[in-house]
Design a protein around this nucleic acid. Structure first.
Lengths: 240, 240
DNA sequence: TCGCGACGTCCGCACTTCGTAAGATCCTGA
DNA sequence: TCAGGATCTTACGAAGTGCGGACGTCGCGA
């Protein structure tokens, strides 16, 4: 049981489309354990809406859907966002389904009944393949004397390397990518941890730990500020 | 299964011939993720023209084509450029098609429905088979006192030859080609071993064995670093 | 046939990291 | 000023993670 931590520097968002709550629930748990943020949709129309609103990195799509047919959904997805990877859940051994699925442009398929573990592996595999290895900006996030290298997963302050843990780095990366904006603990729990629910004090503690490392005086933070009653906000300290 | 690393710096060009845009689109994405440049053609005539104009390294050819028959296209390709590898997409289970395909000289065939992942793997393997190991830079990877010769597949440290096994060399080559970036074990398993899934401890062990040979003190590695909770990263130690 | 090296897997140990709980402290509005 | 809630701080146990050692298998050459 690998149970690997977040494998990529950014938490991916996956949309799971299935009208059976039992299935989608299990799938969600597995994917979340893998460090993905997960959204659910029960039918084709809400799936299309969710894709539009949430901009997921990947869609897991059940072929057998009430209302709009899974194939039709897939086709429209492709039309709307050509690059969006789709993994299709097909009924047991329906050869014709596979043909159709792949012709409509699914990236991979998993036949029911499937082990959620296998699905999770496929998702990771497709994501790994889809996510470009090199980022446009070279993966460097810079704020004055604080520099985070997302490719290397290292950070340094005043030229000295910081020993950040996985979570700390993920949190810092997210905040530096979305500066000057207040985020609630629930937001951070969702976007950084990939949890839709959970103990928010987790965020509090990690912010504390991160401050300990990136702030000169953790008591009076200069970058990672508290927004009272709301959450936190990253304020670049960098001079022009 | 030798490393994929060798494919990565030389960009191969692949021509995909299929009259279904949804199929060719997915295929293109996969191949591009693998570092290939991809051209598309929708029918036999434009395929022949494209081969002439673009000089691809490989052709993926759908047997069922509007206009000119796939077999005929293949035959003409062979006539025009005997060395050009062709992977043929054949319809489901049509035994006769396979026979014909191979008789016309296809290097490999994939039956529909295929997963794009599978096709990409075949393309890799065919390219690896057919592309001679000559590289522009002489195939020398240099990092200070550590030099790897990808052509003759040897490495030396401080002028002394290293006895690297196949896997060890593949791993080293991949890492030296993609330095200063954190790779998860799953990434390495995928890109060096060519496995989608599998026991990640395999990577751990090989990293250890490689360290034993390239690091002065394997206990505190200077080049092949552990990124805690993520994986590994190759950090060039080389002075100017 | 035997011996050997390469390779993948497994086990146990040491260490790190994480989430949660609990108490202290701070802020806000009445 | 006071009460109530939000935030901070610390500590701890559980789970995760990496590493070294060792073992079994496979393929190859002697």
């Amino acid at each position: 049981m690998p149970g690997v931590g977040s494998l990529l520097n950014v938490t991916h968002q996956v949309l799971v489309v299935d009208d059976d709550p039992t299935v989608s629930d299990v799938v969600r748990r597995y994917l979340e354990q893998d460090g993905c943020r997960v959204r659910l949709a029960a039918d084709g129309l809400s799936a299309l809406a969710a894709v539009d609103a949430e901009r997921p990195d990947l869609v897991v799509l059940d072929l057998m859907l009430g209302g709009l047919n899974g194939l039709e959904v897939c086709r429209r997805l492709r039309a709307g966002q050509p690059g969006l990877p789709v993994i299709m859940l097909t009924a047991l051994g329906e050869e014709s389904d596979r043909v159709l699925g792949l012709e409509v442009g699914a990236d991979d398929y998993v036949t029911k009944p499937f082990s959620p573990r296998e699905l999770a592996l496929r998702v990771r595999s497709v994501l790994r393949r889809t996510t470009p290895a090199v980022e446009p900006g070279g993966g460097l996030l810079r704020d004055g004397e604080l520099v985070a290298d997302t490719g290397r997963r290292t950070a340094e302050l005043n030229g000295r390397a910081l020993a950040l843990t996985v979570r700390e780095f993920d949190l810092l990366e997210f905040l530096m990518r979305h500066p000057a904006r207040a985020w609630s603990r629930a937001d951070l729990l969702d976007r950084v941890w990939g949890w839709q629910f959970g103990d928010q004090s987790t965020v509090t503690v990690h912010v504390r730990r991160l401050r300990e490392k990136i702030e000169t005086d953790p008591g009076t933070p200069a970058r990672l500020l508290t927004v009272w009653g709301v959450g936190y906000r990253y304020e670049p300290a960098g001079h022009a």
